[in-house]
Nucleic acid binder design. Structure first.
Lengths: 226, 226
DNA sequence: TTGACGTAGGAACGAATGTTCGCTATACTC
DNA sequence: GAGTATAGCGAACATTCGTTCCTACGTCAA
C-alpha cells in the first residue's frame, strides 16, 4: 500500500472523487465521469491512472465491466498520511472440488450467481490485484497433490485464465495424461513447458506446450485446521 | 414501502441477488446479470420488475446509466442478514517469523497495538471460534517445516494457548532439541506425547510430556502466491 | 365474448462505456 | 546522443448495456 501522498496529484483527485461519487450515487463512476471531474481530457489517461491506483493498492478493477471499479482503500480524513483500508471483503464462489484425476471444474461464468452457502469471504490482500469477478475457489480432494504441498481439504483460490506468466503457479489440465495438476509454470525455448512441483526436492516434468491447457492461476492456498 | 412478502417471487429474488452482488463486487449488477441470476430470459422483463421495485420503494434508478441501480431498502432479517452481521472481519497482527531452530515469538500481549502494515485482515471463517484477541500470525522462514506441508513464506495463524486437545495441530517448543515444530498433538497413556507430521507418510516422533511446551494452536495456514 | 391489465419473451436500436493505438513531451540514465 | 520510463492527448474501435417495440398468454370483469 503506497502512501497517499506519494500518489500523483491527479491520482489523489481521482480517489477523492470516487469516494464522493460513491457516497452520492451508490455506484462507481465511469472513466469519462472521472475525467470530467479531474480535468483529464483523455479517457486513456484516466485509464492509465486507474491502473496505477490498482498497483498502489487503492482500487480493484473488473475488466470490460462498465463502472467495474471498487475502492479498497480510502484517503485519511484528517492530516494523517496513512491510507485507511476499506474493510470490504470479497465473496468468492466455492464451486467444487479439484482432483488430480479429473479436469478443473471452471464455472462457465465466474461472475454468476451462487448460493450463499457456497460463497467464501476473503480479504483483498489474498487476491493480489486479481479481478474479483474472475476468482473462484475449489476444495482439494485426495492427497494426490502432495507434490504441490497441498493436502486433502485445502482450499485453492484460482484466477480463471488461459495463459500464464513464467513462474506463476497454475492449475492445468494435461490431456495426454488425463490429469489435473498444480505446478509452477516455466515455458522453455524448445516449445516444451517445464512444470515444477512446489516441493523443492521433487523433479519437474516436461510437456509440449500443445499438451498443456492452462485453466487458472493459483492465487492462494488456505488450510483450515479448526 | 411495500412489505417484502408482498413482492412477487421474482422481485424478492432480484432484491436478494442485488444484496449479494453488491457485497461481492462493490457495484450494482446489469439488467442482464440480474436476468441470468433470476432465470428471467428477457431484459425487458427485468426492466419491468425493476420499475416495480422502484415503485415499491426498494430501489432507485438512474435513467440511461449502466448499473444505475441503488438499493434503498434491504430484505428483512432473514438468514442472509444474520450471516452478514456476524461476519465482521478481524485484523490479526503479523508479529514475526517462525523458524524451526528458534522459539515461537509469542507477543506478550496479543491484543496490543501493531503497525498498520503488520495487520492482516481475515474473515472469521478462518479463525474458527477462536477469540480474536488471542490470535496472531507468523510467516514461515526456511523450508524446515516441510514435514508439516508448510513452505517458506507461508503464513501460520495461531491461537495463543499453552494446552491443546488431542488432534489439534500445535506449535510447540522442544527444549531438549532446541526446536520449534508444527505437529498434530496426540497425548499417549504412558506420559509421552506423539507428535504427528502433517505429511501422511512421515513417521511421528515421541517426546515426554514434560519436554513439550505448547505455544499455540494452528488455526489456519495461508500460502499467498501472488 | 371482448377488452383491459399484468406478466413474460425476443429482437433490434442506439447510447454509454471500456480498450487500444499512434503520437508527443519530459525527465532521467548510460 | 540514444535509450527508457512516465505522463499525456485524441481518435477510432468493440462491447456492453439500457431502452423500446412487438407479440403472446393468462386472469378477471363487463
Amino acid at each position: 500500500m503506497k502512501d497517499f501522498n506519494q500518489l500523483s496529484e491527479r491520482q489523489r483527485k481521482i480517489v477523492r472523487f470516487m469516494v464522493q461519487y460513491h457516497e452520492r450515487f451508490g455506484y462507481p463512476p465511469t472513466i469519462r465521469e472521472i475525467g470530467d471531474a479531474t480535468d483529464i481530457r483523455s479517457t486513456s489517461v484516466v485509464n492509465y491512472n486507474l491502473n496505477k491506483l490498482v498497483s498502489a493498492g487503492y482500487l480493484q478493477r473488473s475488466d470490460k465491466v462498465s463502472r467495474g471499479l471498487r475502492l479498497v482503500a480510502v484517503p485519511p480524513l484528517g492530516q494523517s498520511d496513512k491510507a485507511r483500508k476499506v474493510s470490504q471483503f470479497t465473496r468468492v464462489p466455492l464451486v467444487g472440488h479439484i482432483v488430480a484425476s479429473a479436469p478443473v471444474p471452471i464455472p462457465e461464468d465466474v461472475g454468476h450467481y451462487y448460493d450463499e452457502e457456497a460463497l467464501m469471504e476473503l480479504p483483498p490482500s489474498l487476491l493480489g490485484n486479481a479481478d474479483p469477478a474472475q476468482v473462484f475457489a475449489l476444495t482439494v480432494k485426495g492427497d494426490s497433490m502432495i507434490d504441490a504441498m497441498i493436502r486433502e481439504g485445502d482450499i485453492v483460490i484460482l484466477h480463471s485464465q488461459a495463459e500464464a506468466r513464467r513462474g506463476d503457479m497454475i492449475a492445468a489440465w494435461l490431456p495426454g495424461r488425463g490429469e489435473t495438476t498444480l505446478k509452477y509454470y516455466f515455458p522453455e525455448d524448445d516449445g516444451r513447458v517445464r512444470l515444477q512441483p512446489a516441493h523443492p526436492t521433487l523433479p519437474p516434468i516436461y510437456v509440449p506446450a500443445s499438451e498443456l491447457e492452462i485453466k487458472g492461476r493459483v492465487l492462494t492456498v488456505i488450510r483450515k485446521l479448526s
